[in-house]
């Protein structure tokens, strides 16, 4: 049985939340975490769709420092008002 993408989105959101401030996670890290947890029940395209849900809803944002990451929304240190 395929895992619903909404469930994947929720699970990935928890992972992002837990690693906030510790490690910036990349799309690939989240994919690997989901595959490790659910095996054949998730596909790469499901994970992609779930990330898109997280980003489009504003629960997560893309960040960049030498590589792109998926993070919780926050004010960045470089920002000027």
């Amino acid at each position: 049985m395929a895992i619903p993408v909404e469930q994947l989105a929720d699970e990935m959101y928890e992972i992002v939340k837990e690693s906030a401030g510790v490690k910036k996670l990349k799309g690939g890290d989240l994919t690997k975490a989901m595959v490790a947890k659910h095996g054949d029940e998730v596909s790469r395209s499901d994970v992609k769709a779930a990330i898109r849900i997280l980003i489009d809803s504003g629960r997560c944002v893309y960040g960049y420092f030498g590589g792109s990451s998926i993070e919780l929304p926050h004010t960045e240190a470089a920002e000027n008002q």
Partner: peptide, 23 residues
């Protein structure tokens, strides 16, 4: 300074954040 968060909604590419160090 290099910024890393700004962009348009839904995209993670296409915008490079940049702020003056002497605003």
């Amino acid at each position: 300074k290099h910024g890393g968060l700004v962009g348009v909604m839904g995209y993670g590419g296409g915008v490079i954040g940049r702020y003056s160090a002497l605003p």
